[in-house]
Structure formats: structure tokens, C-alpha cells
């Protein structure tokens, strides 16, 4: 089953379930008020330091409409009746309105009364809490079922460049330390290069110990960490199987023979599975939210903001 189809079915299932809980919308169709749009624009200006352009104004309006739809949906699911924080807050708001001290009265009764007065719809904290609760529920639902092997494989194939590994080389290396040999290191390196190229037995043992732990294979970053970018780039560009001329690093001179070169590039799925899975689940969550919102819009007879419908 394709990723898109699975998401569409998930969205449809959530929608059908919801229709059973709350079969028909009786409230007026959600709309975004001019005051809300003004507030969104003001928020944009406060954080970005400029007026939104036309596309950004449209995006702000879309977001405001989505927010309203999600709020209504959360209410339709009864979250405003069951969420403990909403209950506490609405009870407190009602006490405040009546001048009652904190803790006075039965919280459950105050909560029911506040709901009957529609106070949950006008309190931004409650609205945000309900919307966030619904979004968390959608995101959690989207993480199930566990992605199938085929889904993982398809997602990996579609976005392979997101998971790449660097090229690596396996080296023979003879190091001539500037610290130990001073100015004689360069001449020694040139002399030793000739012996290595001539295949002299034991010549590889004539260098100095590396002043750090050697790796079995090296990426650019591994070499650059100790010996510098220029040296790392030079080593990665060497042909396989030949002793190099002396290469200068921040520590001295190196004679290097690349035994094996492992090309970098996109990782196979087997070595990126956890990352692919997280990426897929995040994409699934975003897509589930989009599908869910579209279903809500259709249900309320709404198109995108700016559409004639």
C-alpha cells in the first residue's frame, strides 16, 4: 500500500470516526474574523520586523482558519470536558468573574457552568490547550502502525540524498614528525619516499609514531581533526596503490599509500533505517494533519482561503 494511500485512509478513518461521535455540524461555518487576521499580521510584524507580503498574509489566514477548525474539532471530541487543566482554568475564571476566592466552590460544577456559558471558546489558553491536545493525538496516531518494510524502502528511495556518508580511505602511512626531527624531517621524507617506492622491505617501519590513535579507515573529517583540511583533501585525492610524495600536515610530513577507497554517497537503507523511519514518521504526521484538515474543511464546506468556495 502506498504511503499516500495509507495516509488518505488514515485521514478518512479518523474522519469517519469523528462523524460517528459528532454526526453533523450544527454550528455556523468557521470563519476567520478581520480582528483575528489583524492580530496575526501584528504578530508577524512583531517577530519579523516587517509587513507580510501577499503570500505570507494568505499563509497567516490559512493558519488562523486551521486553528479554528482544530479547536472546533477538539470540542467535538469532548476534550474541553475531560482535560484537567481546562477544567481547572475555567473554574478559576468563573470564580474570578464572581469575585470568589481561589478554591471556593465545587470545581466540577464550576467547570460545567463555564462550559454552558461558552467560556472555553473565548479563552486563548484553553483554545491553545485543546488545539495542542488534538495535534498531539493526531501525531501519536500517525506513528502507528509501524512503517512497513516497503514504506521504509520507498521513503528512502525518494529522499536518498538526505542520508549520506562521506568517502573513506584505508591507508598505509609513514609519518615524519617535525617535533622529533625538526628541519631534517623534509629531507628524510623525500629519501624515505624513494625507498618506499622502490619496494624496500622494512621501509614502512622507519617513520615516527602518530601522535594520536590511528583509525582503520579515514573520512575527511577524521584526518582534518588532527592534521588539517589541506592535508585531508590531499589524501582523499590520492590514487589507490601508490606511495605519495611527502604531504605536509600540521604535524610534519606523511608518505601515504591508499589501499582502498570507499566512495561516499547515499547510505543503503540498512544503515540509515532509524533515520529514515523517524523522517517518514515525521512526514506521516505532517501529511496526516494536512489530510485531516482538508477533511474538516470539506465537512464544513470550506476551500482554501481565497478560493471562491
Amino acid at each position: 500500500m502506498s504511503f499516500g494511500l495509507r495516509i488518505a485512509l488514515l485521514g478518512a478513518a479518523l474522519f469517519v470516526l469523528d462523524r460517528q461521535l459528532d454526526p453533523a455540524p450544527t454550528a455556523p461555518a468557521p470563519r476567520v474574523s478581520a480582528a483575528r487576521l489583524d492580530a496575526e499580521r501584528a504578530g508577524f510584524v512583531a517577530t519579523r520586523g516587517r509587513e507580510p507580503d501577499a503570500a505570507e498574509r494568505r499563509a497567516l489566514a490559512e493558519r488562523a482558519l486551521d486553528d479554528e477548525l482544530l479547536f472546533r474539532e477538539a470540542v467535538a471530541r469532548g476534550y474541553h470536558r475531560t482535560d484537567p487543566l481546562v477544567r481547572r482554568r475555567l473554574a478559576r475564571n468563573l470564580r474570578f468573574l464572581r469575585g470568589a476566592p481561589d478554591g471556593a466552590g465545587d470545581e466540577a460544577a464550576l467547570h460545567r457552568e463555564a462550559l454552558a456559558l461558552g467560556m472555553h471558546a473565548s479563552d486563548l489558553v484553553v483554545r491553545r490547550r485543546l488545539v495542542q491536545k488534538l495535534e498531539l493525538a493526531l501525531a501519536a496516531a500517525a506513528r502507528r502502525p509501524e512503517p512497513s518494510a516497503a514504506e521504509l524502502s520507498a521513503h528512502h528511495a525518494a529522499h536518498a540524498t538526505r542520508w549520506e556518508e562521506p568517502g573513506r580511505v584505508v591507508l598505509d602511512q609513514v609519518f615524519l614528525s617535525r617535533t622529533l626531527r625538526g628541519g631534517a624531517a623534509a629531507a628524510a621524507a623525500h629519501a624515505l619516499a624513494a625507498r618506499l617506492r622502490g619496494g624496500e622491505p622494512g621501509a614502512e617501519a622507519l617513520g615516527d609514531p602518530l601522535p594520536f590513535a590511528a583509525a582503520t579507515s579515514w573520512a575527511h573529517a577524521d584526518l582534518a581533526r588532527y592534521l588539517g583540511d589541506a592535508f585531508a583533501s590531499a589524501v582523499l585525492a590520492l590514487p589507490v596503490g601508490e606511495w605519495s610524495a611527502p604531504l605536509v600536515s600540521s604535524q610534519g610530513l606523511h608518505l601515504v599509500r591508499v589501499r582502498e577507497r570507499r566512495a561516499g554517497g547515499p547510505l543503503p537503507l540498512a544503515r540509515a533505517r532509524s533515520a529514515v523511519r523517524e523522517d517518514l514518521l515525521a512526514a506521516r504526521g505532517r501529511e496526516a494533519r494536512r489530510v485531516f484538515l482538508e477533511a474538516l474543511r470539506r465537512r464544513h464546506g470550506l476551500g482554501r482561503v481565497g478560493d471562491p468556495s
Partner: peptide, 26 residues
């Protein structure tokens, strides 16, 4: 193997609540 791997990943996540990662190549 892929199916098994996927199932194990999911089961491990469900059991531990911690998201997983691959073994580092280096």
C-alpha cells in the same frame, strides 16, 4: 529481514519509549 527489522524497531520503541539509531560506521 526488512520486515523483521521494522517490526523489531517498532517493538523496541514501544518497549523503551526511546527512539533508535543505527550503529555508527566509524
Amino acid at each position: 529481514a526488512l520486515l523483521l527489522g521494522a517490526a523489531l524497531l517498532g517493538a523496541a520503541e514501544a518497549a523503551s519509549g526511546v527512539r533508535l539509531r543505527e550503529r555508527c560506521a566509524s
